[in-house]
């Protein structure tokens, strides 16, 4: 589902965020701290702070539907992945290095935009006990890079 190029892309200094939707058709969203591929590259695991993601986690427990957006500030390249089998799993502390690495890569992206380092580090601050993981199989991918082709399905869009 995710080709090598996009697999590499979502693990660079991209901004990552997640959206969900409840039975009342009211959406929710949360900022994420990094991601990795699991199950031989078939599934994406995204790290979020549970304290900020309560509503998203509740929606996912209800229906498994999720949308994840990855955007690189320096190029505006943006990818959205969607899935319907999302689950929440416990955070493995060995992945802390992935979060740290992602924060550093993201800093390199946004410091030239005029955002201060202390602000970025504060936005990305977490306590390990608060971390949780949302894992899903992408079934649709869309390019959301601004321009005439924004929103175009890359593969699997129904």
């Amino acid at each position: 589902m995710i080709d090598h190029d996009n697999a590499a892309f979502i693990q660079t200094g991209v901004a990552i965020s997640l959206a969900s939707c409840g039975a009342d058709r009211v959406p929710n969203n949360v900022r994420a701290l990094g991601c990795k591929l699991v199950d031989g590259g078939q599934r994406v695991a995204i790290f979020v702070r549970a304290s900020q993601a309560r509503a998203v986690v509740a929606n996912i427990a209800e229906n498994g539907r999720v949308a994840a957006v990855f955007s690189l500030p320096s190029s505006n390249r943006t990818l959205q992945l969607k899935g319907s089998d999302a689950q929440t799993s416990a955070f493995d502390t060995t992945d802390l290095t992935l979060i740290e690495r992602h924060t550093e890569a993201f800093l390199c992206e946004v410091l030239p935009e005029g955002v201060s380092e202390i602000a970025v580090r504060t936005i990305h601050a977490y306590s390990p006990a608060d971390l949780t993981v949302i894992v899903f199989t992408p079934t649709a991918a869309f390019s959301q890079t601004p321009g005439p082709r924004a929103g175009q399905a890359i593969v699997g869009a129904a």
């Binding site: 965020s17 997640l18 959206a19 969900s20 939707c21 039975a23 058709r25 009211v26 959406p27 929710n28 969203n29 900022r31 929606n59 229906n63 539907r65 999720v66 949308a67 994840a68 957006v69 955007s71 943006t78 959205q80 969607k82 319907s84 935009e113 005029g114 955002v115 936005i123 959301q144």
Partner: peptide
Amino acid sequence: GVIPGLIATCDADGVPNMAY
């Protein structure tokens, strides 16, 4: 817009979507 906002929406089938 120094840090762009993120808008989450939901379609008729309950599929979420997110955009900058």
